[in-house]
């Protein structure tokens, strides 16, 4: 915003560079008609904002917790939901890479398991609910920084579904497909067999709502939340890891919380 001197022909109010900034102040009232260099307000505003911005970046770790707890307390007493519009590092944020995602009901939902397995199978929601359920309570950590503490997920262990289908000896990895038509994810077979990796049917002890990836999503507790694909519709056993949607765009395939994507968050497991 620093003005460039207009070459040669100058408009009336020009800064006089050699004059100290305070020198003209008392003279203002006495000679209003004389060329008035004026106060460099724009420069002060720009430098002031830059200073405030830098201070904000530095102070954020100390200020943020207080603001989050204040907004959290305010949200409890806020029937309008307007507090939800303020920046807040806790709480879920909705990310979808597809244009629009059609809802699936218990009647229309299917989970197909195929690829390098002995017994390909297609589950209905009722069939998934009838299998043994596991509940895992961990923090959810997004790679963009937000974290939701102690979030219960409940569903069928992925390892159990893989055992039921019978992985062929050539199987090395698992690829996940989603009914949003765009998203995909992958895990190695060893990662997929961990007992904190679920095909989740419930979150926070309620049926998974559509905007959180319901009726069925993947939940990979030890990894950044982009691994926990929403709207899960297919599980294919493959002979190698195929990078998923965000991984094609540069995110890490092995997305351990705190040990990947250049981040040092506290691990969730």
């Amino acid at each position: 915003m620093t003005p460039q001197p207009p070459d040669g022909t100058a408009p009336p109010p020009r800064p006089e560079p050699k004059q100290p900034p305070d020198a003209q102040r008392p003279a203002d009232a006495e000679r209003p008609a004389a060329p008035d260099p004026g106060t460099p307000v724009a420069r002060r505003l720009v430098l002031g904002m830059l200073g405030l911005g830098a201070a904000g970046v530095a102070a954020a770790p100390y200020v943020q917790k207080g603001i989050d707890s204040f907004l959290g307390a305010a949200a409890d007493k806020d029937p309008t939901g307007l507090t939800g519009l303020f920046p807040n590092s806790s709480g879920f944020r909705y990310y979808s890479v597809a244009d629009s995602v059609r809802k699936k009901t218990p009647a229309t939902y299917r989970l197909d398991i195929g690829g390098l397995v002995e017994r390909p199978v297609s589950y209905t929601l009722a069939q998934l609910r009838a299998l043994p359920q596991t509940r895992v309570v961990r923090d959810v950590q997004c790679v963009t920084g937000w974290r939701v503490p102690d979030t219960p997920f409940e569903g069928v262990r992925l390892s159990h579904l893989l055992d039921l289908a019978g992985v062929k000896p050539t199987g090395r990895a698992v690829r996940f497909l989603c009914f949003d038509g765009t998203y995909s994810e992958s895990l190695t077979l060893d990662q997929a067999r961990r007992d904190d990796v679920l095909v989740a049917l419930k979150m926070q002890d309620k049926d998974l709502p559509h905007n959180h990836g319901g009726p069925v999503r993947l939940y990979v507790a030890p990894m950044y939340f982009y691994k926990s694909a929403k709207w899960l519709s297919g599980i294919n056993v493959t002979d190698r890891v195929l990078p998923g949607y965000w991984e094609e765009l540069g995110y890490d395939v092995d997305a351990w919380v705190g040990r990947s994507n250049g981040r040092t968050d506290t691990p969730t497991v």
């Binding site: 003005p3 460039q4 207009p6 020009r14 004026g38 307000v41």
Partner: peptide, 21 residues
């Protein structure tokens, strides 16, 4: 826009507070 003399002249006007401001 800095290539335009009129734009630079207006920036100079915008940048400073005079007594009537």
């Amino acid at each position: 826009g800095l290539a335009s003399r009129a734009f630079r002249a207006d920036l100079a006007l915008l940048a400073r507070f005079t007594s009537y401001d």
